[in-house]
Simulated assay, not measured.
Amino acid sequence: MIIDDHSRLLVGGELFYSDNACNFQKVLKDAIATYGIPDKLYVNNGCSYSNEQLSMICVSLGILLLHTKVRDGASKGKVERYEASREHPRKPLSREWLDDCFYNRITRKVRKDSTIAIDSICYDVPMQFISAKVNVRYLPDDMDSAYILYENKKFPIRRTDRNDNCHTKRSNLPAIDYSRAGGATNV
Rank of each mutant, 00 (worst) to 15 (best):
R86C: 01
R111I: 11
K109G: 05
V110L: 03
K112N: 15
R90M: 08
L93I: 08
K109P: 01
E80F: 15
S94F: 05
D99I: 00
E83R: 12
P92A: 04
E87F: 13
R95P: 02
S94V: 03
E83L: 15
Y103E: 00
A84P: 06
S85P: 01
H88G: 04
L98Y: 05
A84I: 12
I116W: 06
V79R: 03
K112V: 15
T115W: 06
K109M: 09
T107D: 07
K109Q: 13
E80L: 14
E87M: 11
F102E: 01
K112M: 15
R105L: 12
I116V: 14
R108A: 13
I106P: 07
G77H: 01
P89N: 11
S85C: 10
I106N: 04
I116G: 05
L98M: 07
C101E: 00
W97F: 10
D113E: 14
K76C: 00
L98S: 08
E96S: 06
Y103M: 05
L93Q: 07
E96T: 07
S114A: 15
K76H: 06
L93H: 08
E87R: 08
K78A: 03
A84F: 10
C101M: 07
E96W: 00
E80C: 11
T107L: 09
R111K: 15
V110R: 03
K76S: 04
T107A: 12
S85L: 11
S94E: 02
D100H: 12
G77F: 01
K112Y: 14
R90S: 08
S85E: 08
S114C: 14
E83C: 10
T115V: 07
E96G: 01
K91H: 06
K109T: 14
I106Y: 02
L93W: 04
W97D: 13
R95T: 10
R90C: 06
S94L: 04
S85V: 10
T115C: 13
L98C: 04
R90E: 12
